[in-house]
Amino acid sequence: MKLHSIALATLAFAASTTIASAEGKLSIYNWGNYTSPELITKFEKEYDVDVTITDFDSNDTALAKIRQGYTGFDVVVPSQSFMPIYIGEGLIAETNPGQMENGKNIADDWANPDFDPGRKYSVPWLWYTSGVTVNTENYDGDVNTWGLVLDPPESLKGKINIVPEMNDIMYAAIRYSGGEWCSNDKALLKKVHTLLKDAKQYWASIDYSGIEKIGTGDIAASLDWSGSALKRRLGNPKIAFGFPKEGFTYGSDNIVVLKDAPNMENAKLFQNFLMDPENAALNSAYTRYPAAIEGAEDFYPDDMKGAPELSIPAAVRGNGELLRLCDPETTALYGRIWLDIQK
């Protein structure tokens, strides 16, 4: 009898909690350490929504999970190179952020990108440039070249970190060898393969967290991204970021709404909320990456205003291109080359 009533009470309790928390929710699936807590608190207060954040560690992990079907997540933040897969496989909803109230705030450079013409699906979360970060105490020459990590000067040998991002490292190696991105020319790729094989002996580590060790005795140069480089420099003024003259990429991570989002309306509110310059700046202040929203700079913390890492100098603009996804065969071929290097 007693057991019976306990079971009933538990049931009643379970029912009441589900009802109480069923409305006003938003579930975000984002990269780790990439969401400003202040931004979330502000959104929660403004719209009376309870936000939960789940981390992923790579685009591949996120995609694999979302492809399995219903995840309970409302929004996810893939890199732009993965956007064609999300759109092509019908994983995300057409929420038309470009037409939303704050849609006009998207910076001109990002308002009509190849990966999402007219911003039918996505809102830029942040954008970044890939380049090299160097400790100028170890090396005081030109920092604007991939040579620092691919054909390093004596003082950097054995102190180099490479981030395990296939697209970034393959791009660097292909441009350094004089080729075009997404080329599948065998002779060129052979050259790329040899270049990377030779360079590997000078690398200390192939690891994301290797970036954080730059400036210590173990690491003196790393393949890196703009915001991360800024973080490093704020910790140690000797650290500089270079925009390689052989060619570099810029790209963005974008917030999209999943087709089966349980809280579709809140997800749309969040997309619109992010396109407000003041809110976008909150995110930038936390992650140190620039926002792709017009006017957000005005709300940046002082140490970010005019930071050289965050804007591409006009003189080298022509050397940069938007990182795009190659066709599956070329991607697979690049993958095999990169795999072979890492073994």
Partner: peptide, 25 residues
């Protein structure tokens, strides 16, 4: 192997992760 070995000389666990992740195979 990743944190102390620098991820340059893989062991089987890392290799499997790599094949599923960036290797996409």
């Amino acid at each position: 192997p990743i944190m102390l070995g620098g991820g340059k000389r893989l062991m089987m666990g890392n290799y499997i992760e790599l094949l599923f992740g960036q290797g996409k195979d």
